[in-house]
């Protein structure tokens, strides 16, 4: 009650003020909450929002899933091998420093304007945080735990799978959460700029049409995609790795 009461009150008051102010200004500039709810219901009824939501979820799931697999695998290699780290570091730094949105036209040249291009953008946005955090986690295996592996004669596989990898799990999840936020941005950019489809497509279309209430409904649905994905990740962490604690990192 105490935990939920204050945030709830805050949101209710905010929406109330928005409603009152919104009623007095041009609805193109500032749609009221009730208008947004109406738009939301209308978009579900006429069958726009459902498929758009699923398309957004699908693009995110595939691109982000790939980024997770590749990022963790490469991160392990970079974290374990100094040679691999030196070889890959220039590329990692390049992609970290580059505003990835500038690569979208290149992606279109490579992959066209369809599903492949979109998931590649999501992949590209999400990959680097996951890779870097995995490498950091693997590299930061405490000296004492490495010694435990040596004293009790762990094989190479045992010390990677039994010590380095589990030790990196909290750091990997921190990377996964940051990567998810970035992947979400990538997904919306791809749907706005590459295919004009899904939720990004709705944002572009309603923005261009000055239908502000519909635009806001689409934006809120995109946040919902992020919230659902983040919650899914958190559930995964708790189920698979109950010994980890939530890191409480705000990622977007």
């Amino acid at each position: 009650m105490k935990r939920w009461g204050l945030p709830l009150l805050s949101v209710v008051i905010f929406l109330g003020i928005w409603q009152i102010v919104g009623n007095r200004v041009d609805p193109i500039l500032f749609a009221t909450p009730s208008a947004v709810v109406d738009a939301f219901v209308a978009m579900i009824r006429d069958g726009q929002l459902g498929p758009a939501f699923l398309s957004a979820m699908g693009d995110l799931a595939v691109g982000y899933g790939l980024a997770a697999v590749v990022g963790i695998a490469l991160g392990m290699v970079v974290g374990r091998s100094e040679v691999a780290e030196r070889v890959l570091n220039p590329y990692i730094n390049f992609f970290q420093a580059t505003p990835l949105i500038a690569l979208v036209p290149l992606v279109v040249i490579w992959f066209g304007v369809g599903f492949k291009a979109r998931i590649f953008v999501v992949f590209l946005f999400a990959l680097w945080s996951i890779l870097i955090n995995t490498a950091t986690g693997v590299k930061s295996t405490p000296r004492a735990l490495i010694d435990v592996g040596r004293v009790y004669k762990f094989t190479r596989t045992q010390s990677i799978m039994g010590i380095a990898l589990p030790n990196a799990v909290p750091s990997i999840f921190a990377g996964l959460r940051i990567g998810l936020g970035k992947g979400l941005i990538g997904m919306v950019i791809a749907q706005m700029n590459i295919s004009v489809t899904g939720l990004g497509g709705l944002v572009i279309d309603y923005g261009n049409a000055f239908k502000t209430a519909y635009l806001l409904a689409a934006i809120i649905t995109a946040s919902l995609v992020g919230v659902i994905a983040a919650a899914g990740l958190e559930v995964l962490r708790r189920v698979l790795f109950p010994w980890t604690k939530s890191e409480g990192i705000n990622t977007w």
């Binding site: 004492a144 010694d147 435990v148 589990p166 010994w243």
Partner: peptide, 18 residues
């Protein structure tokens, strides 16, 4: 290298947290 058949007790237990 680490000899066979030894046991080592570390300063802070050094248990695997997982």
């Amino acid at each position: 290298s680490v000899p066979r058949r030894i046991g080592f007790v570390f300063q802070d237990a050094a248990l695997l947290p997982w």
